[in-house]
Simulated scan of single mutants.
Amino acid sequence: MKTIHTKARHTEWLSAEEMHDASKLWLSELKFFAEEQIFLEDLIKSHTLELIDKKHFEESKAIIDRLSVMVKQTKTLTKAVKTHERNLSIMVDGKDQLEEEANYRKEHRNLIELIGEFKKRYQTAKTDIFKLVSTVMKEGKQKRLLT
């Protein structure tokens, strides 16, 4: 995954509870994306014949490849957030571990950027899938009406 650095938002001042809440939200969103990806894969499978038609093959292949990448990235991000969540104890153990706490905050800031970028790319891919399947379905209806 390519990271585009954006302005880091006040992660230095985030409390452990706020970081925990953000991690829980990310895990919830990623779980939803994973379930949604299963739906998108089923949608694509149900229109395979139309999608492999000469007219749509290249576009379909590109979109399916993007979805496959998104599925892998969702799994990778889920693992990263779960690991990040497990390491939250560094922030609340009552010990002064300034370097470890700084690294944890840096990792949290990185996850903010990665997940934000992923969500944008995922939304674009999802929109493209719906547009393509919608087009294919409309063409199928038109063919049925003409015959």
Rank of each mutant, 00 (worst) to 15 (best):
S23E: 06
K24D: 04
K24M: 07
K24Y: 05
L27Q: 00
L27C: 00
L27F: 01
S28F: 09
E29I: 13
L30F: 02
L30H: 02
K31H: 08
K31G: 06
K31R: 11
K31I: 03
K31F: 03
F32S: 12
F32R: 13
F32Y: 11
F33N: 03
F33P: 00
F33I: 12
A34S: 10
A34H: 05
E36Y: 07
E36Q: 08
E36T: 05
Q37T: 03
I38K: 07
I38A: 07
F39Y: 12
F39C: 12
F39L: 13
L40T: 01
L40W: 02
E41R: 10
E41I: 11
D42F: 13
D42S: 15
D42R: 13
L43D: 07
I44H: 02
S46L: 15
T48E: 14
T48K: 14
T48A: 13
T48V: 13
T48N: 14
T48C: 12
L49N: 14
L49W: 15
L49Y: 12
L49I: 13
E50W: 06
L51C: 04
I52A: 04
I52P: 01
D53R: 14
D53M: 09
D53K: 13
K54F: 10
K54P: 07
K54M: 12
K54T: 11
H56M: 05
H56Q: 04
H56F: 09
H56N: 06
F57C: 08
F57K: 09
E58A: 14
E58V: 14
S60F: 00
S60D: 00
K61V: 06
K61M: 08
A62D: 07
A62S: 10
I63G: 01
D65P: 00
R66I: 08
L67E: 08
L67D: 06
L67W: 09
L67H: 11
S68D: 14
S68V: 09
V69D: 13
V69C: 13
V69I: 14
M70R: 08
V71I: 12
K72E: 12
K72D: 12
Q73C: 07
Q73F: 06
Q73K: 13
Q73P: 03
T74W: 01
K75C: 09
K75N: 15
T76N: 10
L77I: 02
L77F: 04
K79D: 12
K79N: 15
K79I: 09
A80S: 09
V81G: 00
V81L: 01
K82G: 03
T83R: 10
T83L: 11
H84L: 05
H84V: 04
